[in-house]
Amino acid sequence: MDWHQLWTIATLPDNIPIVAMLFLIPFFSWLGFRQAIANDRLIAQLEADPKLAKTHHRKTWPWQPNWTKELHVWPYLLRIEFLATLIVTIILYVWSITLNAPLEEPSNPNLTMNPSKAPWYFLGLQEMLVYFDPWIAGVVMPTLILIGLMVFPYVDANPLGSGYYTWKQRKIAIGAFLVGFATWVLLIIIGTFMRGPGWVWFWPGQTWDHNTVLYEVNRDLPDLVGITSQPWKGIFGAVVVGLFFALAGFVTHKLIMRKEFDKKILERTTLLQYLIFQFFAITVLWALPIKLLARQLFRIKYVMVTPWFNI
């Protein structure tokens, strides 16, 4: 175990945000899910007791009958905002006094940085370059992710869970988002902690060896099954991609049909909403981790090989 190597990566000033995220994401997940569980308990109680449901104020927080429903923004909100800006300012000052922004040598096109890493929030994209050709990793995938995020509210036909934390009423929507979010964070962590010189995989605690030579043969899936000539490679790849779409779509469908409640939600979902959801679930949420595993476990480079592009 080379603790020094791990320490060097973790204390790199530009990597501090990632280390901070390792604590922030669990903390805020805990904060959110704690309230979700409390709300779910209340919902279960109210579902079981229609009489109580008619009179209950329907929040988990204590409520005094003589309290007004609303507060004045001045001072009750403004003082919170003021306090928040003060705290953020102090954090920023302390951070800026203790840690210096990195500055490397002047730019030199003749001297390539190794490893040459993007800023941490783009490491997910850079790591994707390992699994896909640049046009997918750098252009198509980011576009799909952003459009997928934008259509998210339009395909979520579930009318429940608007404005309060809940898990049981929105398992599919929250689950889908969490899978995507987790994949993204995972790619960033891999890119930060497990990629060394030459973008070679080093486990955390393994020394970065600039002279590492990898004997790694990446194969294309058609070659593996003995198809070595065009156009059969392309046709075979198209069939595999088609099968992947069908299978992933089937599994997604099974997943969103598991519960009686989910079936009710599906009834309210239009065909267009359903198809758009399936498209993004397959192309983003399924394709990315599956290609990642195919590459890491079976050393498969391309699934579909054509003269114009490879997938």
């Binding site: 109210l46 579902e47 329907r58 929040k59 608007s162 404005g163 309060y164 809940t166 009710k264």
Partner: peptide, 11 residues
């Protein structure tokens, strides 16, 4: 929010 919780039976 935080909004009052909604029930499945109210859909």
């Amino acid at each position: 929010g935080p909004a009052p919780v909604m029930l499945e039976s109210e859909m």
